[in-house]
Each structure stands twice: as structure tokens, then as C-alpha cells.
Amino acid sequence: MNPVTEKFLKTLANWKGRFTGAYSLREDGCCVEACSTAFVQITPKKDLPGLDIHILPGSQGEVVAVPACVTTGGLDDLAYNDFFISPGAQATILAGCGLHTGDGPPASHSGIHRFFLGAGAKIRYLEKHLGDGGAALRSMGPEAHLQLEEGAQMEMDVAQLGGIDRARRTTQAVLAAGARLTVRESLLTDGAQQARSAFTVLLKGRGASVDLVSRSVARGESRQSYRSQITGSAPCAGRSACDALITGHAQVDAAPALCASHPDAALVHEAAIGRIASQQIYKLRTLGLTQAQAEEEIIKGFLSAPL
């Protein structure tokens, strides 16, 4: 395994020398290792780059890891991964991408993930993205397309940890009756980086609910954009919240939108953008931290704060 990949995996998939459960490791556009288990079958797609992942009936507490690493510049990696989760199955999916470039050509990775959750299925989805290396541009364009059948539940925890110059994230979801989607997104940008995150959620079944929370920190000259549209066409509940901290000359724009076509669709949104409070900095400095250390602590806490 490429040592760069090995380093990324520790962050992306909590890798400690081996995977536990089913996995497929993608490195520089190719699957280099894969393993199915009794309850999780991973097969390569025949017509497109990527995988079909079937989480079978009876799966309880299975872990599936599908990380991707790009370890060199000059590569535009694209993977289509489809997750078919059987009714009642429960699993945790670890995904994400590490992008490493030198000072030469740029690199990018886009993971197009589709999730089909059967009735009563429960999925916890953890996705992390990070980049490192030289000055070459690192880009990503992850997409998640979710279809939740009756009573299905999905909890998404998505983090962009830094080092990505251009990010364009798209999440689309359609929820049937009683389905529940929770999304927690953390974005960190610095320097001249740009990140855009857009959510579109349709609550079309009675009792469907979504809770979108985006926490972001924009530093330096970076730019971030948050868009969300929740549409409720049944008695349902939806919330979209964007909470952003800016430092330096960064810029964040947030536009949560709601659309209700049923009188019992209860939809709310909130967005707050502000700088780090000077009192917070002062308090930590009175504990002996420098200005930079104080900012780091505040940002770390902010991004990890519970929903």
C-alpha cells in the first residue's frame, strides 16, 4: 500500500493496520483491496468505475469501509458507488477521500454515491475529506443521492477537514413515510479555498423528518456557500441550520430555503454567521494560550459541537 494512502486511511477510516468488516480500498483510480463478508457483498460495477454494495437482510452492526485516495497529481478520479440496504438492515459505512498532490498538475476525486434504504433500514454514514501535499490544486465533487423507504433512518456525518482547494458537494434525498434523515456537516476552509454545499430534500411521506446542520469555519481568504432546500409535501418536519465562523477576510453565504405544500409540514431554518467572539479569545489567552492557539481550540470545539 502506498504510504500516503496509509496515512490518509488512519483519518478516513480509523485504519489501524487492517480493516474490520467489509471494505474496498480505492487508490489512484483503482481498487487495490476488497473484501466482502457474510452480510455485505461488494462487487465492481461492470459498466462504470465503482462498486455495488449490498447490505443484506439480517445485518446488524456491520461496518463497511470504502475510502478512496489519490496520491499523485494529474489524476481525475471518478467513482460511482451504489449502496443497497435491505429492509431492516443496520450498518455503519465509512467513506471519504484523501487527496495528495505535489507542486505540479492538479488532482480531483468525485464519489457519486447512491443509497437505497429499504423499509426500516438504519445506516450511519461517516464521510471525511482531506488534502495535503504541495501547491497543486486539489478538488472534489462528492454527491450523495438518498432514497429512504418507509421508516428508514440515515445519519450522515460529513467532514471536510482541510487541504481541499475546491469542493462542490451535492446531497439529494427523498424520504417516504416515517423515514428520518439527520445530516451533520463540518467544513473547514483556509487560504484561497472554495467550498459549496447544496442540499435538496423532499419529505413526501407522512411523519418523514430531516435535520440538516452545517457547521463551518472559513479562514484566510476562503469562500463558502451553503444552500439547502427542504420541500414538505406531507405532514412532516424539517430543519435546516447553518452556523458559520469566519476569520480573516473569509466569506460565507448561506441560503436555506423551505417549500411546504401541505398545511402540516413543519419546516424551519436558521443561519448564523459571525466571527469568533473576542471574549472567547481573551479568556483562553488568560489561560496562557496564544491568539493562534486560542482560535484553534475555539474552532475545534465549534466544529465538534453536538447537534
Partner: peptide, 23 residues
């Protein structure tokens, strides 16, 4: 400055403590 004085052993409890999200 405030950091250097703290490192010298000056400690201050504020009248109105500030909150920290997530810390």
C-alpha cells in the same frame, strides 16, 4: 501581553464568563 502575563502566573476569573460551543 495577556498571554505572556498568564504564562508568568497572572490568572483572571471574569465577572461574566464566556461560553464556548463544543469545548
Amino acid at each position: 501581553d495577556v498571554t505572556q502575563r498568564a504564562q508568568k502566573g497572572v490568572c483572571l476569573a471574569f465577572q461574566q464568563p464566556v461560553g464556548f460551543k463544543g469545548l
